[in-house]
Every structure is written in C-alpha cells, then in structure tokens.
Design a protein around this nucleic acid. Structure first.
Lengths: 173, 173
DNA sequence: ACTACTGTACCGTCTGGACGGTACATATTC
DNA sequence: GAATATGTACCGTCCAGACGGTACAGTAGT
C-alpha cells in the first residue's frame, strides 16, 4: 500500500539524474549507487554490469515513449502543439529519460542510438498522420529537437517556445 | 613555406575528433595524444592541464564563429538559408568545433556553456537584424539546432533539411 | 528459508598529471 | 670559431586515485 520507489527504480533515477546534470563521465557505478543512497554491491545486485543498467534505461525510455505517443494522439491541442510544449518541459520523467539516453548514445552505444531513432520515428509518424504534410511535420520535429538541444546545453530562452508556437500559427495551425 | 599543421593543432584536431565521434568519455589525454601520433608528454608540453586543452578548444570555436558570422552576413542566399545549410554540414571545421564544445558543456564546464551561449546569441542577432522578425529568427535557429541534434545523435535524415527550406518558403522567404 | 540488500576487500585497467630526459636549433661569450 | 649556455619541442615512465567488476560474509524483513 506504499507508493515508495523501489531501490531498483531509485538507482535508475540516479543514473538518469547524473547523466542529465553532469554528463556520462560523472555517471559511474559508484556515483550512481551513492546518489541513490545504496551501496555499490546493492547496485550490482540489481544490474550485473553497466550495460545492464543502460539496457534498463532504454526499457524505461521505450515505456515512457509508448505512453507519450498515445497522449500525443489524443491531445486536445493537437499533436503538433502538444509535441512542442512537451519538448521544453524538461522536468518530466519522459524528458529526463530521453536526455539521458541521448547522452548514452553519444558514446557510440548502438542500442541507445537505435532506441532514440525508434522513438523519433514514432513521433514523426503521429505528426504526419495528423497533419498529412511531411515538410511541416519534419519542421515541427526539428523545432522540438532545437528546444531540447537548448535545454540540454544550459541555454534556456523562454521566448523560444513562444516563437515556435507563433510560427505554427503563421503556418495555419 | 610549408602548410603543415603543427603538433599543437593536430592535438586539438584529435581532441575535437574524439569528442565528436566517441563522446567526452573517450577524449582522454592519452587517447588524444595517441590519435594525434604524439606522446602524452608531448601533449602536456603544449597543454599543461586538461582545462587548458578545453580552453584552447573554446578559443578555436570563437575564432571560427567570428568568421562564420561574417560569412553569414554577406551570404548571397541570405543569412537564414545560409544558417540552415551550414547547420547540417557537420563536416566543416566550424561544426566540428561546435559539436565538440557542446559535448564539453554537458559536463558542467561553465566556460564551455558560456562560449556556446555567446555564439548562439551572435547568430540570432544576425538573423534578427536581417529579418526584423523575432519569432521567425528564433524558429529558424530552433530548426538549425534540431538539424544539429539529429546529426550528433547519429540520426541523419537528408529530408529534414529540405523540409526546413520548404517551410522557409511558405513563410515568405 | 528466501529476498533484498549492506559493507568491505580486492583485482586489473585506465586516468590526469608530474617529472626527467633527449634532440636540436639558436644565441652568447671568449 | 670553439665552447657554452638557453629555449623549444617533444618522448617515456611513473604515480596516486578512480574505474568497472568480482567475491563473499553478514543482516533485516517476510
């Protein structure tokens, strides 16, 4: 009857947090365990290797993504606006998982790149399905990616999101 | 009368290459030296610490950026189209320096984040100066960022650039 | 008794950095 | 013009600490 997060989940949370806020270099097994208030032995009980920890992170992203695509499909403001809005909400669990995975992908981890590609393809499919206009769908995805990019490099201009919406309006959305 | 690249330059080139293709984790001093065909001692002769190596990388980016802003200002196709085109040309020296710096910035290196912000501000200024339309300027920059983001995570859809240009056309450019 | 851990000790490897040495080109002094 | 410095551009080796991973003994709750 408790909503407490399991140690396993907390370890994944910590891995995510360290990746997002300090980069892959800081996300060592010891640092992850310490951040989660667990021992290194405890971490290795749940994840036998670092690859297994990464794999669990990718599973988590896929779960979030499947749910997000559903929300996007039925969003009252439409998929395009929903997509842009959530692209800048880097506080959400989903976004954290996404950014964390992007950082892993940078170290030439194929599984991470592939997961990322799959998620992006799903998004684009929903945008295209709704708009029936490929250039527009891709441009929206590009702007969403841009909002991410800014967010993840510490550059946060609150006007950027407003500008993206304004452009959508001019394009007849 | 020779155009040979100095060891110092080659070391910086290698640092850049390792950052771009394998991430910050792979860009160790030893790996950089080995990639440049130099010894670790030789590297440390030119750059006394890793921070100094990073500093030199930021200097290089600033130099490239200043030149790029000038080219953008006088580009015959206009700053907007020039910006989008160069955003996807990740083979250029400038882009390599930019991506390398973005990776450094992810490890909470303030100097790198600040340099990146400054470069982005310069670009936006030229776009705004030319278009006199803030939302449009920002949207273009977002699409450019998106093209980068895709490029750097291994996802390279050649249609994306075409779509971005198509949207510019629809917006009256 | 089983699950879910903690804690400690350890291994082999990698890391940033310090350091001493080498080769050679260019002054400086006599 | 020979001898002696000085500076530049490196190489190779060493070190303390951190890394991913292993092993295992112990503990607390169910």
């Amino acid at each position: 009857m408790t909503a407490e997060r399991s140690t396993r989940d907390r370890l994944l949370d910590s891995f995510e947090t360290l990746l997002v806020s300090d980069g892959s270099r800081a996300a060592t097994l010891e640092a992850v365990a310490a951040h989660a208030g667990a021992s290194k032995g405890g971490l290795l009980y749940h994840f036998h290797t670092k690859d297994e920890l990464i794999g669990a992170m990718l599973d988590r992203l896929r779960d979030h993504a499947a749910a997000d695509v559903e929300r996007m499909r039925v969003a009252p403001e439409g998929p395009a606006a929903y997509y842009l809005n959530t692209s800048v909400d880097s506080g959400s669990d989903f976004d954290r998982a996404l950014i964390a995975t992007a950082r892993i992908a940078q170290e030439n981890v194929d599984a991470a790149s592939e997961t990322l590609d799959a998620v992006r393809a799903d998004w684009l499919a929903v945008l295209f399905e709704h708009l029936n206009d490929r250039p527009l769908a891709q441009a929206i995805q590009l702007m969403g990616d841009g909002l991410y990019f800014n967010d993840t490099t510490g550059n946060q201009d609150p006007q950027a999101l407003t500008s993206a919406h304004e452009i959508l309006k001019r394009l007849g959305l």
